[in-house]
């Protein structure tokens, strides 16, 4: 089984007043045939992380390796090599597809760029992939604007898969679609992953979608992973208050009897993250020492990790508050 390892990945941007670490020392593993769901709000660094993995962004520290071999991120040749292995599906297919190219050109283009196959090979492969993503072949001669949002996203998926990548990064792939179309695209992605044994990093702000497609989840807050583990374990027994607050906001949460937990305030600026635990300014359970000590990863159970100084205590406090409320 293939294994993609992200280790100590840091992506920094230089701003006028200092440096922003959009991604700050993130370590993750994505095995072949499995999906890692990455959850977090705007500004938490999840898109920067996705872009760094595809080579669209150069990390300032750490990087990505496949089966123990580091994938270089410098130079055009390295970029091309990486693109063969790692492809991305974007949120807005209208913005990521050239409006003046036909669907045929769009789907075949990656083969051109990589100089793969004869003209006939390319045409055959594009047509077969179009069949697989559920679009009629007549669409080959159409332009993106003649397709619906769901159909365009299928084109985006075909284009990402034509190089037979090993890791597929999906950045909010269904967020712009209506619910009934979302279901079609999610089912397709899940099927394709199983057929091809793809490793998948699935980025979304929609917790119900993440829970459905993922085997493992990682929760990101201000550039850091605050909790990670197998999806159902995390859902049944979240160890970080932020995870608990996110889950409480889902459709299934209320049916499963989870009480609401509404956080105060908003995401602080990544330019100037809070001292100690970065979540403490919004944490309903923060103690004075959370401002002075930075939490390190703890392993509450095999395969799980959490970065919270009050793990164990906050759950008791929440239970006590709920009992007092009832």
């Amino acid at each position: 089984m293939q294994m993609f390892d992200v280790s100590d990945l840091t992506v920094s941007y230089r701003a006028r007043r200092g440096t922003v670490h959009a991604v700050d020392g993130v370590t993750l593993a994505i095995p072949g045939g499995r999906t890692l769901g990455l959850v977090g709000e705007s500004g938490c660094g999840k898109s920067s992380l996705a872009r760094a993995l595809t080579g669209l962004e150069r990390p300032s520290r750490g990087g990505l390796s496949l089966d123990g071999h580091a994938l270089p991120s410098l130079g055009p040749r390295a970029r091309l090599e990486r693109a063969r292995r790692i492809q991305m599906v974007f949120q807005d297919p209208m913005g990521s597809l050239n409006p003046r190219s036909t669907i045929r050109d769009l789907v075949e283009q990656p083969l051109h760029v990589h100089g793969l196959g004869t003209r006939d090979d390319r045409a055959r492969k594009a047509a077969a992939l179009l069949d697989r993503v559920g679009l009629p072949r007549a669409f080959l001669d159409r332009l993106p604007h003649q397709l619906s949002g769901g159909q365009r996203q299928r084109v985006g998926i075909a284009r990402a898969l034509i190089l037979d990548p090993e890791l597929l990064i999906c950045d909010e792939p269904v967020s712009a679609l209506d619910v009934s179309v979302q279901a079609q695209v999610l089912n397709l992605l899940v099927d394709l992953q199983a057929e091809r044994g793809l490793a998948m990093l699935f980025v979304s702000h929609d917790l119900d979608v993440i829970r459905y497609v993922s085997h493992e989840v990682a929760v990101m807050y201000l550039g850091r992973i605050v909790e990670a583990g197998p999806v159902e374990q995390v859902w049944r027994d979240p160890q970080h208050p932020y995870t608990r607050a996110l889950i409480a906001n889902t459709l299934s949460a209320r049916d499963e009897g989870l009480s609401p937990l509404v956080l105060e305030g908003e995401l602080p600026s990544p330019m100037n993250p809070p001292s100690g635990c970065r979540f403490r300014t919004r944490c309903p359970f923060a103690a004075p020492f959370c401002a002075t000590t930075a939490p390190t990863d703890e392993v509450p159970a095999p395969g799980r990790r959490v970065a919270c100084l009050r793990v164990g205590d906050w759950q008791h406090e929440l239970a006590a508050r709920e009992a007092a409320h009832a």
Partner: peptide, 19 residues
């Protein structure tokens, strides 16, 4: 509309989404 919304985890046996 309601059964097209994901509920539960596929990894834990949640049914295929209704299209």
């Amino acid at each position: 509309l309601l059964s097209a919304r994901p509920q539960g985890a596929m990894a834990a046996g949640a049914p295929r989404l209704t299209e």
